[in-house]
Structures are given as C-alpha cells and as structure tokens.
Computed example of a mutant assay.
Amino acid sequence: MTAIDERTLTTPTGRLLGSWESGSPEWHAARASRLGGSDMAAVLGRSPWVSPYRLWHLKAGLVKDGETTAAQSRGHYLEDGIRRWWADQNPEFSVVTGGTYTHVERDYQLANPDGLLVQDGRVAGVLEIKTDAQDDPGTWGVEGTDQIPLYYRTQILWYLDCLGLKVAHVAVLTARLEFRHYVVEYDPADAKILRAHAEAFLDSLLFGEAPDKDTTDSTYQTVRELHPDIDDREVQLSHDQVVEFTSARDALADAKANWTLVRSRMGEWMGDAKRAEFLGFRIAARKSKQGGTPWVEADRKCPPSTDFISEEEFAA
C-alpha cells in the first residue's frame, strides 16, 4: 500500500471527477447521466442483478436504487483486506485507491476502479477487487488467466477503455476463502462493441424508448415500483392480453404440479441416498434442516435437459 494521492496521477484518457464514498450523493450524481462498468453488463443483458429494463428506468430517474444488500456490504468491508493481500503478493506495484473518472472526450463513459497500479511513477493498470459467495469452482477459471465471469470482464474492459490503460489485475476472495489473482488485457474490438451498445442505450433514453420487458425478477420489481399505488378502479383488457396472462398462469400451475410429481418419483428412486448422478453429472440431492424430513431438489450443478441426448441416441 502507498500514500500516493490519486489526484496527482494521470491516465492516458481519464479525467478525475472526484473521490467519493460509494453510495454518497456525489457518487450518485456523477453516475446519473453516465454509464459505469457495472451498468454496461446490464446494458448488454449480462448482469445477474440488473436488467436492461431496470437500468433504463434508473437512468431515467423513474425508480431508485434499492438498499445496500448484505453481499454488497460484505464486499465493502472485505475490500481493504483483499487489496492488502494483493499488494503484498505484487510488491512491484504501488496500489492507490481509485477515484471516479470520465473519458476526456466521451463524458458518458465512467470508470470507478477499486485501485490504480503505479509502477516507475506512472499508472500501469487498474486493480479490481471481488468477493464471490458462490461455492462453485467453475465460476472462475484457472488462476492467472483472464477466465473471469463475463459481467466482470465487461466492467473491467469499460474501465480500461475509459482510462486508456492496457491491463487490469483482478483480486478475488472466493466462497472457499481462497485468494485468487487474474489478469485481463484491453481488447479494442470488444471495447468498440461496448461503446456502440452504450451509445444506443443513451439514445433510447433521449427518445424515451424503454427496452422490452424480460423474464427477470429485476424487471418485475421495476414494474412494481413504477406503480406503487392501488386505485379502486378497473382496467379493461384486450383478448390477447387476457389469453397471454391466463395461459402463463395455467402453464405455471401445470409445471408446479409436474415438478411435485417428479420430485416424489426422484425421492423414491433415491431412497436414503444423498445424491443422484448420471454419467458423472450431479442431478439431484436430498437435504434436510436440523434433522427434519428430507426433501428433494435439483443439484446446483445439474445441467439443463437440453445437454442430454435422447434415449434413442444414447442407445445407439
């Protein structure tokens, strides 16, 4: 760690706006009309947390960010420790806490890196710090490579493109309490694609054209927030609207009934076993809480049904 002030540092194309606490009024104001790294995953429809529909309404000022989640709070408290671990492992760099930057020409492009890496008196790259609560070794690839989740890669490329830097180092604390280090290099072709999507998204805000709704909880939550009141009146539906709604309701009821039947069968097939497998794939698991009656659920690593060939093909 170092006492270097980020205000004295320059990057090839980044302009420092300020250094504010995440979630502060100044931090929100800087992001209001700009797109940050995490926003870009949502623009592309790749964010596990925010749909394009919700991001659009957030940027339009029609809904507000929710309260800080437990995962976000945990990551905030762990960030400094992960940064110190990475700095100890890589003494050739000085690590400076990052501020909030825009591109010198593209003011809509925002970067808020967790750290800047200084070497020989110049900024040589960025440091991004992550915590991952998913106890799944497949979430992150081989350490030392650029095999990181796509939504994080999108964020990091956006930062590099904004600042004009060529490399990012990613420090991760996994759910198994393993420290890992990954390296992502700048890709100008991918950055060009990101900018094109960003500009199209900003154009849609300008013209008031919200993205289509999708199947995510994020979009449903947004619609709920857009209509917080309940007026004592009726709305008349079209034939197509009522068919769409009732068909989905009936399909859901059928799916729930079939799922209950299949779980009963799986429970019988498994007997007292803890796991069910097929050709090395984990399919189902029996679990219990505090010694209670076990239940059956799909294993977290169970592949989709489309991954399995038909019985005829398997027999052949």
Rank of each mutant, 00 (worst) to 15 (best):
D120K: 01
R195P: 03
G115H: 02
H197L: 04
D120S: 14
L205M: 07
D229M: 06
T216R: 03
T102E: 04
D187K: 05
Q155I: 03
W140T: 00
A171M: 06
D114L: 01
E209V: 15
W140Q: 03
A168W: 05
V223G: 01
T219S: 15
Y151T: 10
E128P: 02
D240M: 05
V104S: 12
L110Q: 01
G115A: 09
Q155M: 08
L160I: 12
A111I: 10
L226F: 08
K130T: 07
R224S: 12
E199Y: 09
D161K: 06
Q109R: 13
N112K: 02
R224I: 13
Q241E: 15
D135H: 13
V184T: 00
L237V: 08
R106F: 06
G144K: 14
E199W: 05
R106W: 12
E185L: 06
A198W: 05
Y101P: 04
F201C: 01
P137N: 14
L127Y: 01
A196L: 10
V242K: 05
V242H: 06
G208A: 07
P149C: 08
Q155S: 11
F179C: 07
Q119K: 15
K213T: 12
D114F: 01
Y182K: 00
D231S: 03
E234G: 02
E105H: 07
L177H: 12
D132E: 10
E178H: 08
L116G: 01
D190V: 07
T139F: 11
S238M: 08
